[in-house]
Design a protein around this nucleic acid. Sequence first.
DNA 1: ATGTCC
Length: 482
Amino acid sequence: MSYKEFLKRVDENRVIIPKGSFEGMRVDCEIFINREIEKSLEDDSIKQLVNVSKLPGIVKKSLAMPDIHSGYGFPIGGVAAFDLKTGIISPGGVGYDINCGVRCIITGLKRYDLKNCIKELLTKIFLEVPSGIGSVGSVKLKKNDLKRIVLKGAFWAVENGFGDEKDLESIESNGCLEGGEFDCISEDAIERGISQQGTLGSGNHFLEIDYVSKIYDLDIANKFGLFENQIVVMLHTGSRGFGHQICSDYVSSFSKDLRKKDISLPDKQLVYSYFNSDSGRSYYKAMVGAANYAFCNREIIGYMVKKTILKFFGKSESDLKIELLYDISHNIAKIEEYEIDGVKRKLIVHRKGATRAFPKGHPELKGIFKETGQPVLIPGDMLSGGYILVGGEKSVEESFSSTCHGAGRTLSRKEAIRFSKRTDVFEKINESGVFVLSQSNRTIVEEIPQAYKNVDDVVKTVQDAKLSFPVAKLLPVGVIKG
DNA sequence: ATGTCC
């Protein structure tokens, strides 16, 4: 049986699976996807989306963005909101890399300035920022430091000289979620977290030097300080082994609890606990701790990148104008309020491989972002670069204020490795003119451009659906793949 | 994503 047969196209950018198509569905499923990307939609990710629609307390719809692909329990690219009083919270709805996200740093440099020194500069950054699986050592933490990071997020970096205070207003939730609790985090997680702060990690994590290849909205680009041929840095990482251990601890404890209560699941990976329960609240507090760890991680790495570039050119901060544009989360569950059928309700919104995208005027946005909408940072594959978007006017009502997070995979990691055995994947990279560095060839092979959807098609869908719209397109010059 | 299988 194919899940695809149950898809009904409602407009050029959306398909639904109506409630009732499968037993146990509590709400409709809805995927923002145009006809072009629908061709690469896999049955397994639709099945996962349907499974999510069966979970207790789900509100409105089980949603997915055009970059949907198969994940642990929940699909990546999925958005699911649950009632705070009657609904659940699920580690699989957040992902193993809690608060994985993207940071964009803008500079006063132009493409031309790096023409003859990109390899040298990127190599310096590669030596400065630890990357690769199990990478350690960029900041020495004591247990009390970790405790404070869990509470304070990116602010810890600022108060310890690894960040700038003015950065905080350009980080989603100011770089700190409230309610992190150290006591809800295992000794194993603490042990892993202590050594990994300020490291990039592996897999799809990266640090990229791009140039602005196109401006779509001149007014917003001006407000953001973006201009054509400008050099910007995009970095993508999360909470490393710390968040991973927290996710895996709660997956196993929730799984035991559910077995004890004899509750059957549509998929054993779809473990959950009621938000309004001791175990549910405990996961939430630990998840917030990991989210704060990730905010701190990106702040520290951003600071190291800035220092390295300044030293490389022998210039001062004011000369090179290196500033944080924005820092977003795309693996997180957040408490947000929405009006549902005329009634205001508090929900726990799970965004797994989906980005918050508040439109201009949203009460939570401050300063310049109130006028422009929230910046949304979208990486593509390592050769295609990515986009800077802003939240669009339909996001709040249509998608719990969410949009896509990237290109989305078409090949699993295993499939990418298999593909690489019969194709010379390095040829394409070498011919591209993009300088790629990695600790591991395996990472490159898993992350080949052929393993990803076309990011332009993904962005076109969310733009046409008015969930977010493009401000600038970025193209890579040099890439560090973890 | 991940001390890529305690």
